[in-house]
Design a protein around this nucleic acid. Sequence first.
DNA 1: TATGTTTCTGAACACTATGTTCGGTTATAC
DNA 2: GTATAACCGAACATAGTGTTCAGAAACATA
Lengths: 183, 183
Amino acid sequence: MPQKTIDRRIQRTRQLLQNALSELILQKGYEKVTVQDVIDRANVGRSTFYAHFESLDQLLLSGFEPLRAQFEDFLSGAEFDHESPWALSLTMFQQVQKQQGGYITLTHIQKFLYGYLLDHLKMGMPKRNKNVPPELLAHYVASSFIALMTWWIDNEYPLSAEKMNEIYRQLVEPGTMAIMMGG
Amino acid sequence: MPQKTIDRRIQRTRQLLQNALSELILQKGYEKVTVQDVIDRANVGRSTFYAHFESLDQLLLSGFEPLRAQFEDFLSGAEFDHESPWALSLTMFQQVQKQQGGYITLTHIQKFLYGYLLDHLKMGMPKRNKNVPPELLAHYVASSFIALMTWWIDNEYPLSAEKMNEIYRQLVEPGTMAIMMGG
DNA sequence: TATGTTTCTGAACACTATGTTCGGTTATAC
DNA sequence: GTATAACCGAACATAGTGTTCAGAAACATA
């Protein structure tokens, strides 16, 4: 049973922590950020931090939640059941650029995407071709996507999302299709 | 001016530390290994560790050195100047499997490979096609390779190096060639 | 605006790890 | 055999983690 309203202090605290983490990640990279850094910058008590999150990872994930939920909705929507998995990529490029997600979250997107692709590949792939495990194919398609996304973010979005998506498909689709149709 | 012989104690200490690190990585993954773990298992004094390496990362890198040097030799050899970059991949699969390098070192291989590919792509690519930056192409080819390698290692080499190489080329070559020839 | 509840605070604590220092011990090269 | 270089390990300073708890502050609600 969800609360009607959430205590303003809670919202405030979480927001402060998330903002502090974001800024610190930009400054020195996630690996080097400590809980101490975050609570210092957010000006929040140590115990308060642990009352809300049990680790830095959790705090990071909590910020990613809206984006993740959005993708989940999108992926479970009926509209794409009969489309190929490729229909996803453009939206993903666009969403990531819009939200300026940063590549910190890409790991999570990758896992998510992998699971999705694996399902769809298992359905859509003929039984032949034991040669190439669907897990490998899904891993490749997801990894390639993340690779392009990483380059794109690192270089501060030098091309449009549409162009990136076009390149992605040009690169990945031919080889994948060939193998799926029975290499 | 390099030493004629290296003090046996030095060799012994470094070997012990490297072995200890390898074993610990297999047991619990690099991220969770501490200096304390390493010196305990190697049975080496704390100060001794720091006399040889200034961090765990350095110790890790030192173990990677032979493999890296080998690749460097290989890549700078004349024999492949007129071959396509694809000639590399099989050897790499084979080498990594032989040396049981583990994916810890893959980051370094990737950087290395990226530089190599970028050089060769800039040479071999017509001037047309400003659309797709060679940096992106090199990044993609290197990343895909690392992706397949990662999957292969994670799953404990379920396919032969030859088979992996074949799949890699089937997946990556068509799209890449199409773009290089002027997508 | 009074009240009971929830949240925040911050200091104290136990713990784990890092990296340095230094006097004493041991192995090695020659 | 001896000088030297490497090793040892305990002690120390530093820094981070995660927990606890009593008191202060903010909040929702009526």
